[in-house]
Amino acid sequence: CSPESQKGLRRYGELSRLASETRFSINEVEALYELFKKLSSSIIDDGLIHKEELQLALLRSPYGENLFLDRVFDLFDEKRNGVIEFDEFVHALSIFHPHAPMEEKSDFVFKLYDLTQTGFIEREEVKQMVIAILMESDMWLPDNLLEAILDKTFADADADKDGRISKEEWKVFVRKHPSLLKNMTLPYLKDITTVFPSFVFNTEVED
């Protein structure tokens, strides 16, 4: 057993574990590794995705603040150690798979919007997010209009009228407005081996 073949076996074990934990096949996990390599070497080539690298990929600039990018990063970073490792990347993207259940997608978005992680989406949090999206788009709304948007949203989503949206209320709300989960499905993930065909040069298995 040469060191090279031992390394290959270890890698195969890792790939097969990730495939069993997610909706991806081994070849698809390998194709995702091509994407991961690209993202994790864009600023610091250390095999980890730093927040600035995710920001560069999504916003085309590593500088500046973006509340939503921070939240996405935090949810990908399962171990909460400030970087996204490959297994965390594959786990999170699995939720964006077209075959992932809506319930999983809905839970992910709920956690994303529950900024202070209280188990509820509070009105103040929604206000903060609306202000953030307005700033991102260089838009401004007078406070009365902003409050009107919040009133309308909570009249629709906050069934028990306690000023916050519970996970159950959120589930009902997204069922009424499925477009709110549109971002949570990435059709590319169904054809990831075609999007990153170069994985075949490093593959451990031939499907």
Binding site: L35, L39, A57, L58, L59, N66, L67, F68, L69, D70, R71, V72, F96, L112, Y113, V126, M129, V130, A132, I133, L134, E136, S137, L141, L145, A148, I149, L150, K152, T153, D156, A157, F173, H177, S179, L180, K182, N183, L186, Y188, V195
Partner: peptide, 26 residues
Amino acid sequence: ASPVTMNAFELISKSRGLNLATLFEK
């Protein structure tokens, strides 16, 4: 839709920070 008829989450979901499809663009 105008902002008044739009619910807050529709607005929020337009953030570029939430559009992960960008990761796959070459």
